[in-house]
């Protein structure tokens, strides 16, 4: 269900923990699985659970508790904008509005071509970089003026 490369990555995570604590690698394993498949359908969560020797429900609890896991399909590029107070004071909400306008979608929606999903994020611990957003969970973009947003969307559109 997962590539050899992903399984090797998961094995490296398992090795960080005591031999009888494989479940500790659940968060990392779900992240790696999501990176490969784009989102986490139930079968994938079950696969990860079995790989780690834990109950599927326990893995599902983890997947549903932490908000960066996607339990439903998302567009090819998921953009998460922080609108929390410190960011909002420096334009976080305006940046989000600008992206909504450009893509023609609201939060929690995906463009009809399946390229972009927009999410509202909570504090990313980078308030000094406001407006700040995440691309596909792992790439942080700082100081997002409208010009930089235009540039970012144009680059992502090509991928």
């Amino acid at each position: 269900m997962l590539s050899q490369e992903s399984l090797q990555q998961i094995d490296r995570e398992i090795a960080k923990y005591p031999p009888d604590q494989k479940q500790s690698a659940a968060m990392a394993a779900l992240r790696i699985a999501q990176v490969e498949k784009g989102w986490l359908p139930n079968e994938l969560i079950e696969f990860v659970a079995r790989y780690l020797g834990m109950a599927p429900i326990a893995a599902f609890e983890v997947a549903s508790f932490y908000n960066m896991y996607d339990l439903e399909p998302v567009g090819r590029h998921k953009i998460t904008v922080c609108t929390n107070l410190p960011c909002a004071l420096s334009g976080g909400v305006h940046a989000a509005d600008y992206i909504k306008h450009k893509l023609g979608i609201d939060f929690n929606e995906t463009t009809p071509d399946g390229k972009f999903t927009l999410k509202e994020g909570e504090c990313m611990g980078a308030c000094g970089d406001a407006p700040v957003l995440l691309v596909n969970n792992h790439h942080m973009c700082s100081w997002m003026t409208t010009e930089k947003i235009d540039q970012m969307l144009a680059e992502l559109d090509k991928k």
């Binding site: 500790s24 983890v62 932490y66 960066m68």
Partner: peptide, 25 residues
């Protein structure tokens, strides 16, 4: 070792953080 969180403010609470390292909510 480094353990990577995945989006939960509550894990900054120290015992929630331990639960999280154990691979739980």
């Amino acid at each position: 070792f480094a353990h990577h969180g995945y989006g939960a403010y509550i894990c900054g609470e120290e015992t929630a953080l331990l639960e999280s390292i154990e691979g739980k909510k």
